[in-house]
């Protein structure tokens, strides 16, 4: 193994080790000096995760979170120098991490938090003008074949747990009072998007999630609405569209091959 490889491996080794070939001017043992690098690497990655997963951190406590995040960082160090989106795979790590096995909602909560970060940094896109949509109503016959382009920040999470309620409870200063009233085992779907400069997280019905997911996949308006209604007869299309329009989530729409913007 060459010197550089040894240096790199020692930075992420579980136990403090010191690579060969290091010297010090005063003959002091280099281990402690090398530990400055080890410390910087690990703490930097753990800090990045703590910044991206603040509610996950609150749920398990800072000490536990940092120890768990360190474990993840050593197993899955970043592959890119761009740390803004570091944390891909953290939810899957949590899912398989025995010490949090009892917290069955934790992995989905981490997924939600990663989506929040992704939405934050996603590309900008202007919302389609209201007049454009209104004009579309004049040609109602073409509506079933209309296709929507969603804002690049739009993310959907369909969870078996009440992760949005849990997340929302942590947006106030004293989350503990409301936490006990949340039934963590009740399923929730989340719509995550950036509206202007703000990331918004909404609880939506599963049928609404199906509808939006199909739109995102480029399926036709009529088909997406039909499938959602098929999944749940109480699917409220107007309400769901209202949410999308209000949040600037509709970036474009096309009818029979022609784009409006």
């Amino acid at each position: 193994m060459n010197a550089r490889q040894a240096f790199a491996e020692a930075l992420l080794a579980a136990e403090p080790v010191c690579p060969p070939g290091l010297t010090t001017w005063n003959g002091s043992a280099p281990e402690k000096r090398f530990a400055v690098y080890r410390n910087t690497v690990t703490v930097g990655l753990v800090d990045a995760l703590a910044d991206s997963f603040p509610v996950t951190l609150q749920l398990v406590g800072e000490d536990f979170f940092r120890a768990m995040a360190r474990e993840f960082a050593r197993q899955t160090p970043p592959r890119s120098p761009v740390l803004a989106l570091y944390g891909d795979g953290f939810a899957e790590f949590i899912e398989a991490f025995p010490p949090v096995a009892a917290l069955s909602y934790l992995a989905d909560l981490a997924r939600l938090e990663l989506m929040r970060v992704q939405a934050w940094h996603a590309a900008d896109a202007a919302a389609v003008a209201a007049e454009t949509i209104v004009r579309l109503l004049d040609d109602a016959a073409a509506l079933p074949q209309a296709r929507f382009t969603l804002h690049p920040s739009v993310r959907l999470l369909r969870s078996r747990h009440a992760v949005v309620s849990l997340w929302a409870a942590h947006q106030s200063e004293a989350p503990s009072s409301s936490l006990a009233t949340i039934d963590t085992a009740s399923a929730e779907s989340a719509l995550v998007l950036r509206n202007g400069l703000e990331v918004e997280i909404s609880v939506i019905d599963e049928a609404a999630a199906i509808f939006i997911e199909l739109l995102q996949q480029g399926r036709a308006f009529g088909l997406a609405a039909g499938q959602a209604l098929d999944a749940d007869s109480r699917f409220d299309l107007a309400q769901t569209l209202g949410l999308l329009v209000r949040s600037g989530a509709l970036a474009d729409l096309t009818i029979s091959g022609s784009t409006t913007s």
Binding site: L57, Q58, L59, V60, G61, E62, D63, F64, F65, A67, M68, P99, V100, L103, Y105, L106, R116, V164, S165, L166, W167, A168, H170, Q171, P175, S176, L179, A180, I182, D183, T184, A185, S186, A187, E198, V199, E200, I201, S202, V203, I204, D205, A208, D232, R234, D236, Q239, L243
Partner: peptide
């Protein structure tokens, strides 16, 4: 280690899932 955070305040109970709910939280 054992998680020691707000998770200690969460509980799981069974109740029918609320339908037609649209909750929105803004950052």
């Amino acid at each position: 280690m054992v998680p020691k955070g707000t998770c200690e305040k969460t509980m799981s109970k069974t109740s029918p899932t609320g339908n037609g709910q649209l909750m929105e939280f803004k950052e």
